[in-house]
């Protein structure tokens, strides 16, 4: 059992309080495919938690003092909008794998860019994983 820190830098992001995401892996030796799969699963789980919290506030129809304090730090206090329907995990994982293969994003682990889905990698505790979206560029 290994917990890997995934860098997630948007503090106060609507997705979840802006902390780095921890992804659990069964062992240090893994593949890019597995790393992406676990990251997606964790992300969907966090979204689910967030959705549950939002649903909770909406069902109650008002905010608690602690929620107001937490929201004040982000600069806006409001009842959250209705959360979107939770995605299907298997589908989300498959789409992430496809997106990786057409270079929609890149993954860095242990200071190295991962090239292939089936590439074997060894992650050590304390090493950070970074997912980055790529934007297609052209000379202007």
């Amino acid at each position: 059992m290994l917990r890997v820190k995934v860098r997630e830098t948007a503090p106060g992001s609507a997705r979840h309080g802006g902390h780095d995401v921890l992804v659990e892996l069964a062992e240090e030796r893994t593949t890019t495919r597995e790393l992406i799969r676990r990251a997606v699963e964790e992300q969907v789980r966090l979204l689910g938690d967030d959705a549950a919290r939002r649903r909770d506030m909406r069902d109650r129809r008002y905010l608690l003092a602690a929620e107001i304090r937490a929201q004040a730090a982000t600069g806006a206090i409001r009842l959250p909008a209705a959360p979107p329907a939770p995605p299907d995990v298997a589908d989300a994982v498959a789409r992430a794998h496809q997106a990786f293969e057409r270079n929609a994003f890149v993954v860095f682990a242990g200071g190295r860019q991962l090239d292939r889905l089936d590439e074997e990698i060894v992650l050590r505790p304390g090493e950070t994983v970074v997912f980055l979206r790529l934007t297609a560029l052209a000379g202007g």
Partner: peptide, 20 residues
């Protein structure tokens, strides 16, 4: 160097903790 197309929505439905 500029983005190849404006309003590219390729990342719309990816559930990953992106750092950007």
């Amino acid at each position: 160097v500029v983005p190849a197309s404006f309003g590219d929505t390729a990342h719309r439905s990816l559930f990953l903790p992106f750092a950007d």
